[in-house]
Design a protein around this nucleic acid. Sequence first.
DNA 1: GGGGGAAGGACCA
DNA 2: TTCCTGGTCCTTCCCCC
Length: 834
Amino acid sequence: SMATTETLDSGFLSRMALNDNKAGMEGLNRDKINKIIMESSKGSRFYENELKKEQQVNQRIERMMLQKAHITEQQLSKAQAQVEKMTSDLERGRDLSRVIVHVDMDAFYAAVETRDCPDLMDKPMAVGSMSMLSTSNYHARKFGVRAAMPGFIAKKLCPNLVIVPINFDKYRAVSAEVREVFADYDPHFLPMSLDEAYLDISDHLEQRRGWPEALRTHRLHTNNTGTARVEDHGGLQETVELEGLSPVLFENSPSSSPCLQDAAGGEVEVFGTCAEEAVREMRFRIEQKTSLTASAGIAPNMMLAKVCSDKNKPNGQYRLPSNRQAVIDFIQDLPVRKISGIGKVTEKMLGALGITSCSHLGQEMALLALLFSETSWHHFLHISMGLGSTHIERDGERKSMSTERTFGEMGALEEQFSLCRELCQDLAQDLQKEALKGKTVTLKLKNVNFEVKTRAWTLPCAVATTEELFAVAKDLLKTEIDNVSPQPLRLRLMGNLTLPSPGDCNGFETRRGPTSSTTTPEGTQTHTPKNTNTSAETDISMSALTASDKMTHEPSAHASTSSCCSTEPESGTDSLTCPVCFREVNTTELTVFNRHVDQCLSGVTMGQNNHTDTELERGPRVCEEEVEKEITGGKREEGPKEKGSELLSRCMLDSTSTANISLSTVGLNPVCLNTCPNGDVSIHRANTLKVSSQSDPRVRVCLLSPGGPRPMTTPKPESRDHRGPALTCPVCQETQDTNDLTLFNRHVDLCLNQEVLHEDKCVVLQEMLQRESKFSAILRILPCLIVKFSNMVKAQGPHPLMQYHANWPHGGRLKMLALKGQPPSTLCSYAQTL
DNA sequence: GGGGGAAGGACCA
DNA sequence: TTCCTGGTCCTTCCCCC
């Protein structure tokens, strides 16, 4: 009955147009409202981004239509048979025995604010800010003002709109009161948000049938003001009747039964025993308790109950009888958009196939089975048959936890890093509140053009502290910054997320455990100062991270991780080899050793900008000085000789990197060079690092890769121009006479394959590994290890060494070896413990 | 082909 | 001047086995 957006203006954005499928938004002047929305948005970065997204949806639809055109009769009838089989299976399992209720508070946040400030009652108002509204009252909805609309646009639609700032604590408190009522009808109710819940009242109804009237009688309290409310079970409490001041926001639903007088002269209401009466009673009690109204839907499953609760909104309820025909009839003319889970994109895709109602959905199921994924069409089939969950599952394990913030444009590096750290801290606090840890750290960035990026890193162990999170997040952030440099990253949002990931540690885990740390009553983490589990590995890795980051190293920060991924402490060694300078530090005292590593690392100065030649020289010198102080009688290590350095010379550096310390290998992460005494490092042919090992057999160069793999980027035309037409192969070092990336990549692939398959290279490495058991050396000199090698290394020990792939700046990928789950910056410290 | 990780999106309140 | 936040689930791609 309503005009679809496509029939309006041709250049119209369906994603931006008013969404009037919410209650209280019928019969509005859509065209006029949409015109105002468009005028306020046009030309903004947000609008441009929406335009882009809409084009992507259109392309998706085009692809789908193309696919549809190629479907044969045969395919269709085969799919039809499949659909029919599935339909009859589902029909057999149809369960109409449960009574599911979906309760939804009416304009919740707005209603709470109105209750507490009755002056707002007859004014159009919304809760939120100038940049975003959370909800609006029904008066404001008449102007087209609705949730998820920015306040400044709402103000244009309705200049008299009152915007009340959001007050979560208050809504949480009210929500708790409402939930107390829910619990009386279903102790296992499922809250979906502060204002919404599903209940299974089947058991309650069973009992209720035998209840005497007294248990179904509830006193009617009249509030004297909006704020002074009376407890539901207040007993003999006297209430003053002041009819005119009642803050009731919505008229009672028509089904209200007349009030009776009880013995004490107060008004009471008696409720029946059927489902509708029970739900009416529940809504009555919610209103008595909070002065807020709720709407409800009663149906045989959750999907239908949700649709029903919207039917008589606000302050109403709807019951769909528990018989198959009623369900089928109900679903027939229902617009697909009404179903929870079908949003604007799915609606548009289905619309392109001529499907707008649920009956269409059923008719076209064979087609949908061919065009959509299995999960998608199964979902559609359930909807078209009116099926949904019949039992409410509570307490599902939490899957992730995140925190994000939007701010004015931010381009300064220090600001970005400190915000990142702040977010890590907030997240760590939230994690602590629930005593949880996570294995995957995700950084979310939104730039000023509203483009969203997420970058994730999965660790072998679950982590939870600020330092642990930041160690990973800052790596991810740095990689992004480097990726757009020399332009700054212009951000408008940053977020931080931890996710579980299936594995040994079982992802998101609680911290409480027999061996792990404990949580004090105050909620602060405590650790045994010297956990016996703390292996050299964990200590070293943390010291590397913190030192490189110039952060203070709290010994407790990672003690808990060792319970998960600890390895046996190395036995029989009375010295440890520094992963940075390659010298043996003649101590088993980890504190001493870590101090040495820290100093070595700070000498290296990881990836900082604006380092000069002199700093390049100073770094190692500092290192050496410290070494002299630390080590007494430490013997020098024999490193790999010519063969190793030959391989090293194959590392290619990014010509765009200007700093001498922070060079980058092509397709890899920024690499720091650490020259040990007498090293000869020179930049060879614009972007190739050349190391000569003639003067000294010791290993002299250490490549540290502080970032995660480079993210996928679309080739930037300007940077290609900088590069010039010639591309140099990182493997054979020969300049290729092509600017065509496909051709060039093919060449590199060929080169790499030859490299991989070249037998004596394998043998050399294998020998080195066996003879010297110096994985560290290999890791450093070969940031681009290849499949065959990584497999070989993997097979050697318990450590999850693996190959991973880094992106070539202009597309394509390079293969690289690292420890599974570790950012490359931790490479050297882990390598040490091998 | 299936499984798993990473990135991106759809969708929800 | 100003278009959120915090969650879940799904899809797509790529790799490994």
